[in-house]
């Protein structure tokens, strides 16, 4: 019996997720080690080693034994802290990088460095999730009345409508924490989708939203009955407008009005295409060049024969 419990605890300790049932018969040494190692894991910054001299560890052990001697069922649970949470890991890495290399974290994505999933510190992604979505509260929220500027009360009552930033709305409308229901922003609703379906090229997408595609992709990820239709319209709009963007990039002068009708994604594509075209034009109109000797070669003094003889 004793052995079984120890083994079980040992194994679960390794899994860092301990739920051990105890009945006071368990070996004291084993328990010490378990508590010790758990506390060490939780407090690595305090400089604890395996040996328990830290007053906090000793106090924990004391409590543990008091509990053991009382006749109750005891569970040991490891709480993961912030390990493995994406944002926390990214922030840790950035902080470490800043501390060791002294570099300031500033992540501006160029198209070239753009990956298929946006970087955690991508400014474009942060701005895109900052766009507001209409939400309706389905649970009362105390003391957050200020979110709804039209209400006088301290609390938010059920049924209140408010426009929340997407990152907040997404977090509080999940299945686990269902506080609000998200409605689709009007630019992705059927009426606007019909406009895009009719002719996407004449639309001033910049007026629809600065991050039409990125924000739209987030919206279409919501669990809504229109989601698939929104996703489809994003792809279709992109396809139809691409020719126009490419033509503008290759043929326009420096007319600022043109790029003002594009959303941020199209604009970065436009800028790239425009730059390539400018380089090509410059190359085509450039006159013949002449190969010259490098400055280093010109400045390099020849050694005199007399010097060589001395060597």
């Amino acid at each position: 019996m004793e052995k079984d419990v120890t083994c079980e605890m040992d194994r679960q300790n390794k899994k860092r997720n301990c739920v051990g049932k105890n009945d006071a018969e368990t070996d004291q040494e084993e328990e010490k080690e378990l508590v010790g190692s758990l506390v060490v894991k939780k407090l690595p910054s305090e400089g604890c080693t395996g040996k328990n001299e830290d007053p906090l560890v000793l106090r924990t052990q004391q409590l543990f034994h008091t509990l053991l001697s009382s006749d109750c069922e005891l569970g040991v649970v490891w709480i993961p802290g912030h390990v493995g949470i994406r944002g926390n890991e990214a922030a840790d890495a950035a902080a470490k990088d800043g501390a060791t290399n002294g570099t300031l974290v500033y992540w501006r994505e160029s198209m070239a460095g753009r990956s298929l999933t946006p970087h955690y510190f991508s400014l474009e992604d942060i701005f895109a999730t900052q766009e507001r979505v209409p939400c309706k509260f389905i649970l009362p929220v105390p003391r957050l009345g200020f979110l709804d500027p039209s209400s006088e009360s301290d609390d938010i009552v059920v049924g209140t409508s408010a426009e929340l930033p997407f990152w907040l709305a997404r977090a509080i409308s999940s299945r686990r924490r269902n506080i609000v229901t998200i409605d689709i922003p009007k630019i992705y609703k059927e009426a606007y989708r019909e406009i895009l379906k009719a002719d996407a090229c004449v639309v001033d997408l910049h007026k629809f939203g600065l991050f039409f595609y990125q924000f739209g992709a987030y919206i279409s990820r919501l669990n809504h009955r229109d989601s698939a239709a929104i996703g489809a319209i994003l792809v279709q709009t992109f396809k139809e407008r691409f020719r126009q963007v490419m033509d503008w990039a290759h043929n326009s002068g420096t007319d600022p009005a043109i790029s003002q009708r594009l959303d941020s994604l199209e604009r970065s594509l436009f800028r790239e295409g425009h730059q390539t075209q400018a380089q090509l034009d410059a190359w085509l109109s450039q006159g013949p060049e002449r190969i010259t000797a490098a400055q280093m070669v010109v400045n390099h003094k020849k050694r005199k024969l007399a010097d060589l003889e001395h060597l």
């Binding site: 279409s220 990820r221 698939a228 996703g231 489809a232 994003l234 792809v235």
Partner: peptide, 8 residues
Amino acid sequence: MFSLQRVV
């Protein structure tokens, strides 16, 4: 375009 389609 690929990343948009992947979302769908």
